[in-house]
């Protein structure tokens, strides 16, 4: 079970497991990481280690904040593609309601289609009382027909 989970991530990166396990723990990636510029104190190598120890770090701060700047890849002696791992973990994880809605909007419409998003997250908005901001949102929202109807 554990193994398949790990292999799934490596499969999603489009690389082999060897390309990641070659890491020798020098922490060069941490010294150049952009997240450390904003004081997150992260070590991208931790991500690899915890995956190899059998724990998928879904809520690690790198997974949340990584900007895929590829600075770590540039300076890594072995050119280990950490952003690819981060992308794979993000893709696998279910994510919160907004992320899921955004993803399905992309899947259906090919873009972020606001009316769809709005109706998907409507229960959330109702529950938390966000609807009072509705008039202001409408000004920014683009209530056009769905793109696939226009194409026809």
């Amino acid at each position: 079970m554990l193994k398949t989970e790990r292999d799934e991530i490596f499969e999603k990166t489009g690389q082999r497991r060897e390309d990641f396990s070659v890491c020798m723990g020098c922490k060069i990636c941490a010294s150049v990481c952009t997240l450390n510029d904003i004081g997150k104190n992260v070590n991208p190598q931790d991500l690899l280690l915890s995956i190899f120890l059998g724990h998928i770090p879904n809520d690690h701060s790198i997974v949340t904040y990584c900007t895929s700047c590829y600075r770590c890849v540039e300076s890594c002696p072995w050119r280990i593609k950490i952003p690819e791992i981060v992308r794979a973990i993000r893709e696998r994880s279910k994510g919160d309601l907004f992320t899921r809605t955004f993803k399905s909007s992309i899947a259906i419409f090919g873009r972020a289609y606001e009316p769809y998003i709005f109706f998907r997250i409507l229960p959330f908005l109702l529950k938390k009382g966000y609807l009072r901001y509705l008039p202001r949102w409408i000004r920014y929202m683009n209530f056009s027909f769905p793109p696939f109807l226009l194409r026809r």
Partner: peptide, 9 residues
């Protein structure tokens, strides 16, 4: 020099 040691930068 920036370096990462003991969980901190």
């Amino acid at each position: 020099v920036r370096y990462f040691s003991g969980g901190k930068l």
